[in-house]
Design a protein around this nucleic acid. Structure first.
Lengths: 237, 237
DNA sequence: GACTTTCATTGATCTGAATCAAAGACCGGT
DNA sequence: ACCGGTCTTTGATTCAGATCAATGAAAGTC
């Protein structure tokens, strides 16, 4: 909720050695473009629970997540919250033509982002079809994810929701750090509930139920997918 | 559900006189680009309830809606349906880099679309930053809508859902055809239910409730927003 | 204009998830 | 190791919306 006072700003110490270089937006840039691009960005750190940007903020920056996890959420005036996505390293956030962000982003645990000022970035991208195409690709991909999530929110039971979330989250981590059925869950139960359109109690009960059924084991800080076939079946059907 | 056998294909009789020219993707093209663009598209008609493309179809075409309304939806294996959006003239659909569409589109009433083959379109767009930027803009806009809809599906009551839908639908029609508080609803109650993550009975009851409260009047083929301030209050909060 | 079919409304009942209410578990600080 | 806070789990109860079941109102069709 609070905004960073202690964020350490260090100029992007080269994109060449960036952890995210190979698979983020920047993957579409050649060597020379990259050289220029470096000067548009700077690294910023945020502590756990700090807000990277808020719903009502003017959208003057884009961010590329380098390390950590973000939650993106929207709040209704009465405080109800819907988490619209979790962000992992390599994901690009906040790209919008609109005046304001429309959603908030905050850090789940310590986070490092690569921050771009909107205007210089837009000027840079303006005549780079490869970058523009890559950004399109990312937007379309996110849109597809968003639509899948609509199906989940509108038409699935609590058990299906939780199973789908666990399988989906595992798959994203597998892509990032290699195969494993141990699924770390850095976000709280409340976060999971607000992502799935449930209450914290229902999430907790559903975890317990899945454990009783032998589908998962609940570990400190995460779960293990004991029977991923059955979890995937719940997620698919 | 069925696919068109009677679709009348007529070559785009000029984009210059196209109803949608001013505000769709094509708005970003200059006179010369437009000349070339014309040859990439052709008009196709669909009768009510015909499928423009299906979830599992290879995505070899994009579409620009010229006339009528489409519903976009996803089906779960067991038949549960989530409508992910309604498409109005000027909207661009089916743009994706992925192999398959991932959702189905069918006509609500007779429809005319402007159809583009994916490959030639991509080749055309490749070196047109203005068009690419416009497409980005549209994708980002859709993504914002999708996120708003997630909030609705995950965190709002039936009454709020219906009110939000009516106000939002009216606003889209106002943009298209000018101000009016009479809101034609070409889609069925079942469609509305599948859009809002409700059942048809709940939608029907909620309409009746809003009418009793004096917020709307139910008309054949639509509603009238009698007290749009109160409807908007329900939609906002 | 009667007849079938589809779609919308209304009513009665049920249920999955929400809400209300305690306990436990797990910190971080001292 | 102990304390105070936060987070998670579990239990009891309620309720919004789903399900089941008619009935009513349009829209074709012959």
């Amino acid at each position: 909720m609070k905004t960073s006072l202690v964020a350490v700003d260090l100029h992007g110490q080269g994109c060449a050695d960036c952890a995210v270089r190979g698979f983020s937006v920047c993957a579409s840039l050649d060597q020379f473009e990259m050289r220029e691009f470096e000067h548009l960005s700077r690294r910023v750190n945020f502590a756990s629970c700090e807000t990277v940007f808020a719903q009502e903020d003017t959208s003057s920056f884009f961010y590329n997540l380098l390390d950590g996890v973000l939650r993106l959420y929207k709040l209704l005036p009465d405080g109800r919250r819907q988490i619209v996505g979790f962000v992992l390293p390599g994901d690009f956030v906040g790209m919008t033509t609109e005046e304001r962000h429309g959603f908030s982003a905050d850090a789940i645990g310590p986070v490092t982002v690569c921050q771009f000022a909107k205007m210089p970035f837009a000027r840079f991208a303006d005549d780079k079809p490869n970058l523009l195409r890559r950004m399109n690709e990312l937007a379309v991909h996110e849109l597809n994810q968003a639509r899948d999530h609509m199906v989940l929110l509108g038409r699935r039971s609590a058990e299906e929701k939780v199973a789908t979330f666990l399988v989906g989250w595992r798959d994203r981590l597998v892509e990032l750090r290699g195969p494993s059925n141990i699924v770390p869950l850095p976000m709280s139960r409340q976060d999971i509930a607000d992502y799935l359109g449930l209450t914290i109690e229902t999430v907790s009960r559903t975890f317990t139920k899945l454990e009783r059924e032998g589908i998962i084991a609940i570990l400190p800080g995460g779960v293990s997918l004991r029977d991923s076939a059955r979890a995937e079946a719940l997620a698919a059907a």
